[in-house]
């Protein structure tokens, strides 16, 4: 235990190219706490685990499978992985209400600013967190290693789809742009 964190070693699946090495990853987990006053945020914090040192592919799907495996009954509502973001809308607009439009439909969770290499895993209810934490502690003290599921595509599929996904369908795009511009115009009008 470090600073209230539970250190949970987990087993990574060895890719065939590295057959002879068995790698172990270490998750650092603890119950999330917040200094925020907003009751919604306090509620989210109470239902969340703060996780430090993320393994590859840390997303909703992999955490769901992982906790499904080690702690049946602890159901995940959402995962918020830290990512370095700068809101250029906020910084470039001189309007009063200057949050981003297109990317403005933020989930409440994302209002937490997370440090690098960390994630917030939110469970359906507080008992979910308790259950999960209990299982984690039990597992950490046992010799058994849980397996980390990678739920993202890898290899050529990963990179060719990354390239393919850069293509935007013109019709959908045109509609969205038109919509956003209308919204922006309305907001500008509003601001006057």
């Amino acid at each position: 235990m470090s600073k209230g964190y539970t250190v949970l070693p987990i087993r990574l699946v060895s890719p065939p190219q590295l057959a002879d090495t068995a790698a172990v990853h270490h998750l650092y987990l603890k119950r999330h706490s917040t200094t925020q006053r907003d009751p919604t945020l306090v509620d989210i914090a109470n239902r969340s685990l703060f996780i430090v040192n993320l393994p590859f592919g840390a997303n909703f799907e992999s955490f769901k499978r992982f906790f499904g495996e080690i702690s049946t009954g602890a159901i995940i509502e959402g995962v918020h992985v830290s990512s370095p973001e700068i809101d250029l809308t906020k910084l470039t607009s001189e309007m009063k209400n200057n949050t981003a439009l297109e990317f403005g439909e933020k989930k409440e969770q994302e209002k937490f600013i997370l440090p690098l290499n960390t994630a917030l895993v939110t469970f359906l209810d507080t008992s979910g967190v308790d259950l999960a934490l209990q299982s984690v502690r039990k597992l950490a003290s046992s010799k058994r290693l849980a397996r980390w599921p990678v739920a993202v595509s890898t290899g050529s599929k990963r990179y060719s789809s990354l390239l393919e996904e850069t293509v935007l369908e013109s019709e959908g795009l045109a509609e969205r742009v038109a919509h956003d511009m209308e919204l922006f115009a309305a907001k500008e009008l509003d601001d006057l």
Binding site: Q17, L18, V24, G57, T154, R158
Partner: peptide, 21 residues
């Protein structure tokens, strides 16, 4: 620094692209 885990991740990420290490 957890070198084993990092190498594991790197190779996992590369998947079928990786032919040797």
């Amino acid at each position: 620094f957890n070198n084993d885990a990092v190498l594991n991740e790197i190779i996992t990420m590369g998947g079928d692209l990786v032919k040797g290490f």
